[in-house]
Design a protein around this nucleic acid. Structure first.
Lengths: 142, 142
DNA sequence: ATGTGTGCAAAGAGTTTGCATAGGT
DNA sequence: ACCTATGCAAACTCTTTGCACACAT
């Protein structure tokens, strides 16, 4: 793995370019869906990147602070998941049975949010939208 | 507090009509927004309902199993929140600063969900939609 | 009378923190 | 050389579980 791959991203935000941050960013870059701390920790192990869970959590904290990644609780299973903060945010369709996740690239709420902003005195910064159900496999098992 | 207030709801679902279940249902009925286990536990104490946190959690589990309440992680603070499962589901606008919560009664996604159901092979059962931002007070403090 | 629900204490799971060392600029 | 980041262990918070007793039907 090229250690300096995300150097510019990190230095432009004023934080050090470390092995752990590079590796976490690479993993998130290559993932279609948000990942848990544990999942990333195991992937780092497989890549022979020496680390521990607390470093992964501290890396998340810093990357969130700098606006590079975001956190969500999309599976409602008590585990936070992390993903890159994309220019165009994504939404997900999630299988309740197996956690299979489909990404929706377009966001259907632009108009609604604009209307809402006029109605309530709130400085709206973001929204979450996730759809739940059973995928092809899991609906047969029900 | 009238112990039998929710008797019919409970017995119709085939579960026992207990002090704890009645009290939790009453609290949720009177709350505009979803509540945590701890919040409900403290409210029960104030009502002099002898209970403990594990009973509150077990009550949640049973009421969820029976489809009477639902759980969500809307504040992303690591605490699950519970609310009655309304016939017409609600969405929330949540202040990141102080957790002030505004309820949106109408759901803007009926059409979108119908379209999506045709596109993907998923048995859609529900969705989550929450809007985040800063309320009138908190945006001045920023 | 029977089986389910409850309170208490302890265990589990996910996440955070303190501290000494290692590493980036 | 300096200060920040890391690894390890321990702590912390939220939630779940085991067990004996209490309660609803």
């Amino acid at each position: 793995m090229k250690v300096n791959k995300y150097k510019e991203v990190l230095t432009s935000k004023g934080i050090k370019n470390t092995r752990s941050r590079n590796a976490v960013l690479e993993i998130l870059q290559n993932s279609e869906i948000p990942l848990t701390a544990e999942e990333i920790f195991l992937m780092l192990k497989q890549k022979n990147v020496l680390t521990c869970l607390s470093t992964v959590y501290r890396t998340f904290e810093m990357l969130m602070l700098k606006g590079i990644i975001i956190k969500s609780n999309i599976f409602d299973d008590g585990k936070a998941r992390y993903e890159l903060k994309h220019v165009h945010h994504k939404h997900y369709v999630i299988c309740i049975g197996c956690h299979k996740t489909i990404t929706i690239e377009e966001c259907p709420f632009g108009e609604f949010e604009k209307l809402l902003k006029k109605k309530i005195d709130f400085d709206v910064t973001e929204h979450k939208f996730e759809i739940y159900g059973y995928c092809q496999n899991c609906k047969q098992l029900k």
